[in-house]
Design a binder for these strands. Structure first.
Length: 774
DNA sequence: TGTCTTTAGATTTTT
DNA sequence: TCTAAAGACA
């Protein structure tokens, strides 16, 4: 690297950061406040280890998300230049671990790779070809078992049972141990019945759920000292990011790997622990010095991200928590603007307020939209915001909600692949046996299941003996044999052909596009979604076992990994925003029972977790933070009055500014009328009538700005506008909005100032506007 | 058995 | 509001 003599590894670090980077061995705790350069320390420390002749392959770095893993790799690469071969780590590759490069990945991704090598040592019957069951699969399975056991679905919620099982697994409890230890009551009695059955079925399907990935790995390590030794030797240096969010299974895993060499560096901030619902326990980070008495501790307290005003608010808020280590986060950054707290009328008014503010900010500072984020407590809040942004023609991308890989058509195709890859997968079989429709219904399935159970074979395997099943007529047998043949034929291709060919043949054989195409826009969108799958699949063709890598990738990938760096506003939950930062952050919905959530009101612990979430939310902002709360809100089909969040009164009053959109009922009503008039516009504007459909139509998980086919608009509105006939400064009249002045032109998009209504972006060829001759 | 219609029920956060 | 399960009917 050109400036290697300047030691870039140790450059641009403050004294504390440098201290952490320079510790080359032994246990190290880095308490890193928000925005204090945590990732910087991690990456530079890895680079420094490598610069001190520790082979990259000796290093294991565990991150919380795949996105963070990728980010970390590219940053290490940047620091080390050629010293770090760019092939880097492929997160989903099944090839072993590289001797040259650090292993970077999430707990789940790393565990999968360990299991692909060593799971058979457990002698549970699980093989290297195991599939990963996602939430949807596990829900189906537990429902199935409940039916089988005659457990009343009304009395016992499958969700509650699943989450109970998950918690137990995260505590590394086996069904046997759970059965002994759980306090006896009606609910645990049910779980005691279902847990072992659930586990048994997973094994017989050759499947693991998310929690198994961790638990099985720990089991291997505890059972086979020689396997544990292999990984201990491989990873002489272990680094853990977001340590405050580790659960017991992960904690155990870390101890197993690093107790011997003690070269363990954990980084985190107990104030940012927000995943306790998933079993995370921030006491892990508080107890680190107890667990490792030789630990060195470095506190990073200088914040480089946010203005002093933003930081002051975050500090004051988190100060209301009793738990956690006291910290003194400070900054040299300028004071900046005050945090703005705005009272709005309802969720629509809130959407309008945010859209107007974005237009205003853009007009004033020409801020790139990718610097703006809207962070909310729950996905259900996004709809009103999306509608408003769409109406105002503000491009946005939405992370979360219905994930791309959760779409029905995608899951169906994946289920086919799963079955091809693993014929034991009954859940996959049940998903697709009648997709496309083959006239195989509940009755036929029941017969198959009876025989499968009797011969302890999987549903797919039982098709071999189909001729010996008297209950089925010839037509059914033919249909089932055809289905079997499709799967068997495609299985032959797995070894030789890339996934794209396999997908192509599959879609062809089952005439999937024909099945999806119902003539509607939604049908077209579904086809587009399936086609998008090809581009995703292409990335796995170079893996050793492409289909396994592909299935694994889609099981472990989150929407966050698909976040694009485009010129658009980002919408996501606060949880998803952890680890990210944005110059301008909107925080809507700071109302009691939304934030803090109604489910968090009953205990101090959960309320404190909500407060930490608030802390995370505010500290995402670099320059500006705009909080809003609505007087009433439509939620789950009901309109309710809502009190401002208690967190608002816990902010630093000196550093806040209150405002209101001042919309009483009447004005909100008239505004609503304007909305509906414009909604007609939005509805007609292309293939979309609701935000959700937009995301489908765009062919990805993102609801990107609808690129509207012009011809359709013209047909719909009978307006043919010449895009070039407008100029800055000209006056126009909008049929619905009124008179305005053009202040900016960007291609077909006009920025128009409407007196008294604010600045809006308008697509010239779409909206009913005309020039006003003066 | 599929499809259309109705109804009930659930909505925090996610690897 | 939206989804999934249940019911009615061809």
């Amino acid at each position: 690297m050109e400036n290697s003599d300047k030691k870039p590894i140790l450059a641009n670090l403050n004294a504390k950061q440098l201290k952490a980077v320079k510790v080359l061995s032994g246990p190290l705790l880095v308490l890193a406040g928000a925005g204090s350069g945590k990732t910087r320390v991690l990456t530079h420390r890895i680079a420094n280890l490598m610069a001190n002749n520790i082979p990259g392959g000796d290093i294991l770095a565990v991150t919380f998300t795949n996105k963070a893993a990728k980010e970390m790799e590219s940053r290490i690469h940047k620091i080390l230049g050629q010293d770090f071969p760019h092939s880097a780590v492929s997160h989903f590759s099944l090839q072993g671990f590289s001797p040259k490069n650090p292993t970077v990945g999430t707990f789940h991704a790393i565990c999968v790779r360990i299991l692909r090598t060593d799971i058979e040592s457990l002698e549970t019957g699980l093989t290297k070809n195991f599939v990963i069951f996602d939430t949807d699969d596990t829900q189906k399975l537990i429902k199935l078992l409940m039916k089988e056991q005659g457990i009343d679905e009304k009395e016992f919620k499958f969700r509650a049972i699943l989450s109970h099982i998950s918690t137990a697994k995260n505590q590394l409890l086996t069904p046997q141990v759970y059965g002994k230890e759980a306090e006896p009551n009606r609910f645990t009695q049910v779980v005691k019945t279902l847990f072992p059955l659930y586990q048994k079925h997973l094994i017989s399907h050759n499947a693991l759920d998310f929690d198994d990935l961790l638990q099985k790995t720990v089991q291997i390590f505890e059972k086979s000292p020689e396997i544990l030794e292999k990984y201990r030797k491989r990873w002489n240096h272990v680094l853990i990011d977001e340590y405050q969010d580790t659960n017991f299974a992960q904690y155990r895993l870390i101890r197993l790997l690093s107790d011997k060499h003690q070269n363990l560096c954990v980084v985190g901030d107990d104030h940012q622990s927000i995943y306790s619902f998933r079993g995370a326990d921030f006491r892990n980070i508080l107890d680190f010095e107890k667990d490792f008495p030789n630990a060195k501790t470095v506190k990073l307290e200088q914040n480089y991200r946010s203005t002093a005003n933003i930081l002051a608010n975050a500090n004051t808020l988190i100060g209301y928590n009793e738990s956690g280590r006291k910290k003194n986060l400070w900054t040299h950054n300028e004071e900046g603007q005050k945090l703005i707290i705005t009272e709005v009328f309802d969720e629509k008014d809130e959407g309008r307020f945010i859209a107007d503010k974005i237009n205003e900010i853009q007009y004033e500072t020409n801020e790139n939209l990718k610097n703006i984020a809207i962070l909310y407590r729950m996905n259900a809040q996004s709809r009103a915001l999306e509608e408003s942004l769409m109406r105002n023609r503000i491009p946005y991308q939405i992370i979360g909600g219905v994930r791309f890989f959760d779409r029905k058509e995608i899951k169906d195709i994946l289920a086919y692949l799963r079955l091809i890859f693993n014929p034991q997968d009954d859940i996959g079989f049940l998903r697709i046996i009648n997709v496309p429709t083959r006239k195989i219904g509940a009755a036929t399935i029941e017969i198959l299941r009876k025989y499968a159970k009797h011969y302890t074979m999987s549903l797919f395997e039982i098709l071999q003996t189909i001729d010996e099943i008297p209950e089925l007529n010839e037509t059914k047998k033919t249909v089932l044999k055809n289905f079997q043949k499709i799967i068997l034929d495609l299985q032959k291709l797995v070894q030789t052909e890339p996934i794209s060919i396999l997908l192509d043949r599959l879609i062809d054989r089952i005439e999937f596009y024909k099945f999806l195409d119902d003539g509607s826009n939604e049908g077209e969108a579904r086809i587009q979604n399936v086609k998008e799958l090809f581009s995703v699949a292409g990335r796995y063709d170079s893996a050793e076992n492409p289909i396994a890598a592909f299935l694994e990738g889609v099981a472990l990938v989150s929407d966050l990994d698909r976040m694009e760096n485009t010129d658009s506003v980002t919408l996501m939950t606060i949880h998803a925003a952890k680890g990210l930062e944005f110059p301008i952050v909107f925080l809507p919905g700071w109302e009691e029972n939304i934030f803090p959530s109604s489910n968090a009101q009953h205990s101090l612990e959960s309320l404190e977790e909500e407060r930490r979430l608030g802390y995370v939310a505010i500290t995402r902002a670099e320059k500006r933070c705009l909080i809003s709360h609505a007087r009433q809100r439509m939620l789950f089909g009901k309109r309710d009055y809502s009190a401002p969040s208690k967190f608002l009164s816990e902010l630093d009053k000196e550093c806040c500014e209150k405002s209101t959109t001042n919309h009483d009922m009447a004005s909100a009503f008239s505004r609503g009328k304007t909305f509906s008039a414009k909604k007609y516009l939005a509805t007609g504007s292309g293939a979309v009538s609701t935000p959700k459909k937009t995301s489908a139509a765009s062919g990805s998980a993102f609801a990107t700005f609808p690129k509207t086919p012009k011809t359709k608009k013209e047909a719909l509105f009978g307006i043919v506008q010449n895009e070039t006939e407008f100029a800055i400064g000209e006056k126009i009249i909008h049929r619905e909005i009124g008179n305005g002045t053009i202040i900016q032109i960007s291609g077909d998009i006009l920025t128009v100032a409407f007196p008294g209504l604010g600045v809006k972006k308008i697509v010239a060829s779409v909206e009913p506007i005309e020039k006003v001759e003066e």
